[in-house]
Design a protein around this nucleic acid. Structure first.
Length: 292
DNA sequence: GGCCAGGCGCGTA
DNA sequence: TACGCGCATGGC
């Protein structure tokens, strides 16, 4: 039994859709239970509910709730961000389709590890892998009554102490040596994740791709979802397909052309715009793959 | 049963 | 710079 009481709080926030935010493929450990979302932020279990412009939260011994405000990015004005997107038909449709979708500010190591696991995996499978890693190597946390067991995400040091076979047993497949290598590099102090936030985007990216299993795409996911670099623009198969179909329908652009376009067209919050396109393509119109 | 998945690393042209 | 391939595994 938890020794400290469950506490609760309410936030009033406009233009925030918790369900889309948790389901859009940026974070992988949120679970819907009844009308609530349950998850773990750092070493805290949290239960969140939303009713229109009110988000209520429950957690144990939260002290203050700044950690949650920061994670949810409650002080960000979504209206101001969306106003910077290009006003073309596809972006307008994506914004309409993903109404209230926000970018979270995740813990860097968990985000990095999750996306190392993401290579050629669907979102549901990434959820499965991160759940297995947490339950086998993380620490159990106190949870609210009636909730499923919850675990902290294992530290890099804990993963570094595991064997490749143990990671493969978490269904990581060929990603296991990548995650192990990255965890051991961090545990050995080759890169300090806590210092990347101070660097320019290009330098932070260059540091991350030194890690095994981390290329430009995964680095950009981490830079966007954990550090909030607004111009980090992950290009995965969905985004590449979207850019080709929507913006280069009559020719097959070279990768360098796609890259240049993505860096200039979408404005100062291009990473945000990218996530709107990503979720829009995956959940509305992108189900046929013949034109890829 | 075949295709695809929030790729990376490496070899080759 | 661009392309192809192997890598594990499960959903659809």
């Amino acid at each position: 039994m938890p020794s400290s009481p469950l506490e609760s709080v309410e936030f009033v926030v406009k233009h925030y859709n918790l369900a889309v935010t948790f389901a859009c493929g940026q974070a992988f450990r949120w679970r819907q239970s009844g009308g609530a979302w349950e998850g773990v932020i750092g070493s805290r279990w949290v239960r969140l509910r939303q009713e229109e412009d009110c988000i209520s939260a429950e957690s144990f011994a939260p002290a203050d709730w700044l950690w949650l405000r920061h994670y949810l990015q409650l002080d960000v004005s979504l209206e101001e961000i969306v106003a910077t997107f290009p006003q073309d038909p596809a972006m307008l449709a994506a914004v309409s389709h993903c109404c209230g979708m926000r970018l979270l500010r995740q813990e860097p190591w968990e985000c990095l590890a999750s996306f190392i696991c993401s290579s050629t995996k669907q979102v549901v499978q990434i959820q499965q892998m991160t759940a297995l890693l947490s339950s086998r190597f993380g620490d159990p946390l106190p949870v609210g009554e009636g909730s499923a067991a919850a675990f902290s995400f294992p530290t890099a040091a804990r993963i570094a102490a595991a064997t490749e076979a143990e990671l493969r047993a978490c269904k990581l497949g060929f990603r296991a040596p990548y995650l192990l290598g990255a965890a051991r590099a961090l545990d050995a102090g080759k890169i300090d994740l806590s210092r990347l936030a101070e660097l320019p985007l290009d330098e932070a990216r260059a540091m991350l791709i030194e890690l095994p299993g981390v290329g430009v795409k995964i680095a950009d996911c981490v830079l966007l979802f954990a550090y909030g670099f607004q111009r980090a623009f992950p290009v995965d198969v969905w985004i590449r397909r979207a850019l080709r179909e929507i913006y280069f329908p009559k020719r097959r652009p070279k990768p360098a052309r796609i890259l240049k376009f993505s860096q200039s067209y979408f404005g100062p919050h291009s990473g945000y715009a990218q996530q709107y396109l990503f979720h829009y393509m995956r959940t509305s119109r992108g189900r046929s793959r013949r034109s890829a």
